[in-house]
Simulated assay, not measured.
Amino acid sequence: MISIDPAALSERDSYKLLIGSVVPRPIALVTTLSKDGVLNAAPFSYFSIVTASPPMLSVSVQRKQGAMKDTARNAIDAGAFVVHITDESIVGKVNETAAGLPPDESEAAKAGFTPVAGEAIAVPGLQEAKIRMECVLEQAIPLGRARDGDEPACDLLIGRVVRFHLAEDVYDNGGHIDPLRLNPVSRMAGSTYAKLGELFAIERPQ
């Protein structure tokens, strides 16, 4: 085995080890609304479930040289955001939202997404996604430290889901999501993505 002390690595080298090791990662397409009413959209693979009671999600928004990104700033200002699950039918458009646009331009509009009004929050979602979850911001936690200063390295957003929106063909009467109909896409390292592969089951021990 190769043993590596992260303290001896650059931020970039630590990043490469993490994104190459923690795979596959689901991709959250997050929409937020600026104070000026601009609908921001951006993809994040530093994303997971926090708890089911109440339902909560986490999205880690990495800062750029210590500067907070639009998604984190908007979510904190509005106290809400929407998480969409990236699937094969929208992954091309999701990738377009990663473009570095200024705050007064909408990535959602540039990518050709259709805004749809929220039911429980003021932030719009995107109609094309098969699953979207309206969230109120529970906590925004600055974490880490930028290598070139004292500013945090990221803003960890904890959102409480207040409304699930599910396409009828991915949801069954038993309350389950059909992964084969959802066709989720995950992030690997670099510019590589992965589709849903072979499914298998292992029963948990009693």
Rank of each mutant, 00 (worst) to 15 (best):
I2E: 05
S3R: 06
S3H: 06
S3G: 04
I4L: 10
A8P: 10
L9I: 12
S10H: 00
E11T: 08
I19L: 04
I19K: 10
G20V: 04
G20E: 00
S21G: 11
V22Y: 06
V22G: 07
V23N: 06
I27S: 01
A28Q: 02
L29C: 13
T31P: 08
T31H: 02
T32R: 09
L33W: 10
L33T: 07
L33V: 01
G37N: 11
G37D: 04
V38I: 09
V38R: 14
L39Q: 06
F47G: 08
F47S: 08
A52M: 15
P54V: 05
P54W: 01
M56E: 10
S58Y: 12
S60H: 10
A67E: 15
K69F: 04
R73P: 14
A75H: 15
I76E: 04
A78V: 08
G79S: 03
V82L: 11
V82C: 13
H84I: 00
H84M: 02
T86V: 12
D87M: 07
I90L: 09
V91I: 12
E96I: 03
A98V: 03
G100M: 02
P103F: 01
D104M: 05
E105F: 10
S106D: 01
E107D: 03
A108L: 07
A109L: 08
A109Y: 02
A111L: 14
T114Q: 12
T114L: 13
P115C: 00
V116F: 09
A120F: 00
A120Q: 12
A120V: 11
A122K: 15
G125H: 09
G125T: 08
L126R: 14
L126V: 09
L126E: 14
E128H: 02
E128M: 02
E128I: 06
A129W: 01
I131Y: 02
V136I: 14
A140P: 06
I141C: 09
L143F: 04
G144M: 13
R145L: 09
D148C: 01
E151G: 11
C154K: 09
D155I: 14
L157F: 13
G159N: 06
G159V: 10
V161S: 02
V162S: 06
F164M: 08
H165F: 12
A167P: 01
E168C: 10
G175I: 08
G175A: 01
G175T: 13
I177V: 14
P179D: 02
R181A: 10
P184L: 00
V185A: 04
V185I: 12
R187T: 02
S191F: 13
S191H: 08
A194H: 05
K195A: 03
G197K: 03
E203W: 10
E203I: 05
R204G: 03
P205H: 13
P205L: 10
Q206C: 08
Q206R: 13
